[in-house]
Amino acid sequence: MKLPHDWFHADSEDKEMYGKELNLEMLSGHFLFSKNIEVYAHRNDATDDILCRHIDAEDLYTVVHLTWSMRPEIDNKHPTVEFHGSYDEFLQYNSKFFN
Score class of each variant (00 low, 15 high):
49 D>S: 11
77 K>I: 01
53 R>H: 12
45 D>G: 07
38 E>Q: 15
6 D>F: 07
30 H>F: 08
42 H>M: 09
85 G>K: 09
2 K>F: 00
31 F>S: 02
39 V>L: 08
2 K>V: 00
69 S>E: 13
61 Y>H: 08
53 R>P: 06
92 Q>C: 01
17 M>W: 14
76 N>G: 00
13 E>L: 15
62 T>C: 10
56 D>K: 13
93 Y>L: 05
93 Y>I: 02
43 R>W: 10
54 H>W: 14
57 A>K: 13
59 D>A: 04
57 A>Y: 12
44 N>I: 07
98 F>I: 02
38 E>L: 13
5 H>I: 00
31 F>C: 02
98 F>S: 06
35 K>L: 10
37 I>F: 14
68 W>C: 12
70 M>T: 14
93 Y>W: 14
92 Q>V: 02
9 H>G: 03
15 K>E: 13
10 A>K: 01
15 K>F: 09
39 V>F: 07
30 H>V: 05
53 R>F: 13
51 L>P: 10
91 L>W: 00
62 T>P: 01
73 E>M: 14
29 G>L: 05
83 F>C: 01
54 H>I: 06
95 S>Y: 08
92 Q>K: 08
46 A>L: 10
54 H>P: 11
37 I>T: 10
9 H>N: 05
82 E>C: 11
25 E>I: 08
9 H>R: 05
90 F>M: 04
85 G>M: 03
66 L>W: 09
30 H>T: 05
84 H>Y: 08
26 M>G: 02
8 F>M: 05
18 Y>A: 10
97 F>Q: 08
51 L>T: 04
32 L>P: 01
81 V>I: 10
56 D>H: 14
77 K>D: 05
7 W>F: 06
5 H>A: 03
16 E>R: 15
46 A>P: 02
4 P>Q: 00
51 L>I: 08
24 L>S: 13
94 N>S: 08
79 P>V: 08
7 W>K: 01
98 F>R: 09
36 N>P: 09
33 F>D: 03
3 L>V: 01
45 D>C: 10
26 M>I: 07
1 M>S: 00
32 L>E: 03
33 F>M: 06
47 T>S: 15
59 D>S: 04
19 G>T: 03
